[in-house]
């Protein structure tokens, strides 16, 4: 059984079909990319999986458990941690506090009315570890709102990682970065994924980034899956080329 299973997932906005009958399987340990031109429905697909918006039709299952209909905090607690395409942080808190608050959410003792110091210590340990893996230790004590755009993107990944998720969902981690920033971010991310411990669902529109990071690629075009295979096959696919040449930038 695959870790994450989508079955006929559909989202309609009035007459517009943002996500159309998407079915896919993500196995444990896999790094899967979802690509497609702007407006293809990639972010909508993430919103459906993580409960930010409700599906019109279809079902999401995680480790055999149905997630459809749950609230986004429940879905996160099931082990799916995500980042947003538009950076979403706590700008007045330091990077360390951001990561700590994120890690705290997954600690069993977080509701305990006493012993807060121990909860903070464990959360900070997990948060610092994640910051370190993304090379953010040097800026850990700076307010998140004052970090460079590149570091903010990575901080959001660190926050998701600090939750020790069973699957990490990244929505365009290199969105809005300069060419140099993108290169260094991809370097950091590929280091993170190298040991094959993480299961990742990655949205990207930058093909180069995708081919560097992903083992399997799902191509979305106007809400519909038009290809779903290993990078070499997807690269050679005529439909994919047509979609990208037709509607991309």
């Amino acid at each position: 059984m695959a870790l994450l299973e989508l079955d006929g997932l559909t989202k309609r906005y009035g007459g517009l079909v943002a996500v159309n009958q998407v079915s896919m399987r993500v196995e444990t340990g896999e790094v899967r990319a979802v690509i497609g031109p702007n407006g293809a429905g990639k972010t909508s697909l993430f919103h459906l999986i993580t409960g930010v918006v409700r599906a019109t039709e279809g079902e999401v299952r995680f480790d055999g458990r149905k997630l459809t209909g749950l609230s986004s905090y429940q879905i996160c607690q099931a082990g799916l941690s995500r980042t947003f395409q538009l950076t979403s942080l706590f700008p007045e808190m330091t990077a360390r506090e951001n990561a700590r608050l994120s890690a705290q959410a997954r600690l069993a003792l977080r509701w305990q009315p006493y012993g807060g110091a121990a909860v903070f210590a464990e959360a900070a340990r997990r948060g610092d570890e994640a910051l370190e893996r993304l090379g953010l230790t040097d800026v850990a004590n700076r307010p998140a709102g004052l970090l460079s755009h590149g570091d903010q993107r990575l901080l959001e990944v660190a926050m998701a990682l600090a939750q020790r998720p069973r699957i990490l969902l990244l929505d365009e981690p290199t969105q809005g970065l300069s060419v140099e920033e993108t290169l260094s971010a991809v370097e950091t991310l590929s280091g993170l994924l190298a040991d094959g411990q993480l299961t990742v669902l990655l949205v990207e529109h930058d093909m180069e980034v995708v081919f560097r990071l992903a083992q399997k690629i799902t191509v979305l075009h106007r809400g519909t899956v038009i290809a779903d295979d290993v990078p070499e096959v997807v690269k050679a696919d005529a439909d994919v080329q047509a979609a990208y040449l037709g509607g991309y930038e």
């Binding site: 930010v52 979403s88 942080l89 007045e92 808190m93 959410a105 926050m159």
Partner: peptide
């Protein structure tokens, strides 16, 4: 500071 993010973090 950011309620939507807090929700998505599992709170």
């Amino acid at each position: 500071e950011n309620e939507a993010k807090t929700l998505s973090l599992g709170y």
